[in-house]
Amino acid sequence: MKQTSVTTNAPCWVELGTDDPAAARDFYAELFGWRPESGVRPEDGGYTQMFLGEAAAAAVTPRYAPQQPTAWTVAIAVADADATAARADAAGGKVRKEPTDVSDLGRFSVVADPSGAVLILWQARAFAGAGVFNEPGSLGWVELATRDAAGARAFYPAVFGWSVAQSEHYTQWGLDGQDFGGMVVMDDGFPPEVAPHWLPYFSVADVDNTVGRAVAMGADVLMPAYSMPGRRIAVLRDAQGAPFGVYTDGGEA
């Protein structure tokens, strides 16, 4: 069963940190049909939510620190940001930002797993997260790329209670019967300077068409479109340098 709404201890949101938020907003609005809605309060600091129809789908933000990469960051819904951050620390991760309130919207923390892959912990108050999942133009899958698969298989179940489904070539994450992510092992195909990271995949109506339109707008193809059982996927890098995936259900069986 696919994730269709915000679920505690599962992905709930994604946000892009970039040096050119205006260009990123234009790119993703054209590619996915998103509508930008910038914050009106000074403390929002350029944070822009992107809507798919009337549902919040993602956000685009400036980079807030020199060491912050131009990249998408995945947020996990948690019941208690402080307790989850403490579990992450106890399981061998690192708390990059201590739990902090965001006005009345919620409380968040930034943590890294033992290999350095970063996640946001989001304890919702007024804002729960994305209002749409697994529909064209919305988040549908998240994938960890790491050089420490064994460490990840120990860390994420300990922190979030995730199930682990292991096949010959792929590890899949789930929770209460919902499948929402997976893991790939970073081999020689990944340049050594590429750090472990989480990659969001967005649902689209047609992967090949989406790839063609993205390239026409300045994106690069990191992984050409190909079919796998039940799904067709591709990985792109936007003009600012942030990788992301796209997929369409119904690939070759």
Rank of each mutant, 00 (worst) to 15 (best):
P192N: 05
S167R: 04
K97Y: 06
G182D: 07
V132E: 09
H197L: 05
E193Q: 12
A57I: 12
L105E: 10
P11T: 15
E37L: 03
A205N: 06
L139I: 15
N9D: 14
K2Y: 05
D26M: 09
G46A: 09
E30H: 11
I76E: 03
K97E: 01
K97I: 09
G250A: 08
P200S: 06
P114N: 02
A126I: 07
L139C: 13
A117I: 10
L139P: 12
A29I: 11
V95Y: 04
A81L: 03
V118K: 09
G39D: 03
G46Q: 06
Q166M: 12
A126G: 07
G151V: 11
R231Q: 02
F32W: 04
D26F: 04
A154C: 03
Q3K: 08
V102A: 14
V211W: 08
G33E: 07
A253L: 01
T100H: 03
W173L: 13
G39L: 06
I233M: 15
F160P: 13
A77T: 04
G131W: 01
L52N: 07
A158H: 07
V6Y: 05
V60A: 07
L31P: 06
R87K: 15
G212K: 02
D89H: 07
M1Y: 06
P196C: 11
Y226R: 08
T8C: 12
G251D: 06
M228H: 01
F160D: 05
H197M: 06
P200R: 04
Y156V: 09
R125Y: 11
K97T: 10
A149Y: 00
D187T: 15
M1W: 02
V14Q: 03
R237Y: 01
V74K: 10
E37K: 14
R87T: 11
E15H: 15
R25S: 14
V14H: 01
M223K: 14
D148N: 06
